[in-house]
Design a protein around this nucleic acid. Structure first.
Lengths: 242, 242
DNA sequence: GCAAAAGTGTTTACCATACACCCATGT
DNA sequence: ACATGGGTGTATGGTAAACACTTTTGC
């Protein structure tokens, strides 16, 4: 949805097929997504997206797009849904964009390539916000982490895509990931609990949550963290190496 | 994978994007999939598949393909995964197919369209075997219900696609469907239990299974079914109307 | 009456939740 | 000492699994 379009028709991409990424990051008790504000009249935002080269695996394309946008390697990435409504096209967006930005004018062929109807494969990624260095493309004004509960105006079915991504994240969270990718190396039990409460949007009981996590046998307990507060110092934990 | 290819490039399909369907049917304690034996030297099988028209929703395309193949309406259908490895193409298959079937020869343009690398969206369907009237396409020799545990040689990543479909089916089964689409109108508790045991490939206890199902409050109990056997006659059930 | 299979009630065991208490820390 | 928040042990309650018993059917 928000890839630079100049020259795309000559880059040997698969036509009419794109990848949209929902990049989740967690900070201070809020779940965020990394989205670009577009160079486009009005307050319009997109999703980090891109196309698939002819000789490239789709999963690999998603990985490449993610790495380009975040400057990170080894990102947790999961395909979750395909968005294929017949009315998914960039025609309206492009005409306004070009009216605003004549310097982006490409060839007729490129324009036609880009404004056709697109089917998009949705991937979601889990990253540590502090490790990400967001990269813009020529058609982005800037990239921003926004609270999942205060999303801006997203082009096309952006909101639906994010909603579906969150749903998939929740469904997968218990089973295998357990926030591995959303937290720093070490963290306290309270921080882990806060992450769960944010993602599932409901409270957990402190003691039961601790027991649940320890019983999973996926955490190593490290030294205590003395914060200077007038209370018992919490342990730090990290996820066990596999 | 097994759509007639003649004339496809002129039919205004989205290029390089296909739909593969895993059609599940249940009979006599076995879970089956409906697959076409291809007109192709050697024992090669495909999956019911097709393409997406330019102005057609992807979900609608899957529905159309399914209805064409089964002559059924209102089929339960669920998108489950996208298969996008770079090496997914029909080149080898087509050259052998054409060597065997010169009458299928189309234009060079059509051939090129079809042998490019394809990304395929996987859908699985649940149907009552007895209601399906399998339809072949010109490149199918015949369609057959085959046991999920005794799959024939499938082209490309057919086995992987079916495996992933089964995995998705299991994950969804508890939540909403409960075999609604895999059983005839009426059935006994034992038949329902057998279906569960087949899909999950594990036994259930008779009494606990019955309690579990009745507690779900989705079954209407009908009259008894007298089989002539020297034992208590089981009740027939049907799924409640919504 | 008896064998076979269906239906139903009862006990047990487990696990998530709830509750209660104790411990460490800095002022 | 005490307020604050962290850690842990114990009771409880609901549910799924295991066990046991009764009922129906045709010979």
């Amino acid at each position: 949805m928000s890839e630079s379009y100049k020259g795309i028709s000559t880059q040997n991409y698969i036509a009419q097929l794109s990848i949209d990424c929902v990049i989740f990051g967690y900070q201070n008790g809020t779940l965020n997504v990394l989205v670009p504000k577009l160079n486009f009249q009005g307050d319009f935002w997109g999703l980090p997206s891109g196309f698939i080269y002819q000789h490239e695996d789709v999963d690999q394309a998603a990985k490449r797009i993610l790495e380009d946008r975040t400057q990170m390697k080894d990102i947790y990435l999961e395909q979750f849904h395909v968005f294929g409504n017949a009315n998914r096209n960039n025609a309206e967006f492009m005409s306004s964009l070009l009216a605003q930005n004549p310097q982006l004018q490409g060839s007729k062929e490129e324009y036609d390539w880009f404004v056709r109807r697109f089917v998009s494969i949705g991937y979601y990624a889990l990253v540590d916000i502090k490790k990400v260095k967001p990269q813009t493309t020529p058609i982005d004004e800037r990239m921003e982490w926004v609270d999942i509960n205060q999303l801006p105006n997203l082009l096309l079915d952006g909101k639906e895509i994010i909603a579906k991504a969150l749903q998939a994240l929740r469904a997968n969270f218990d089973d295998h990931l357990v926030g591995y990718n959303l937290l720093p190396e070490t963290f306290t039990m309270k921080e882990l609990q806060k992450l769960y409460e944010t993602i599932f949007d409901k409270p957990f009981r402190r003691n039961n949550f601790q027991k649940m996590m320890l019983d999973l046998n996926i955490l190593d307990r490290l030294e205590k963290q003395f914060t200077g507060a007038a209370n018992k110092a919490p342990y730090l934990y990290k996820f066990k190496e596999i």
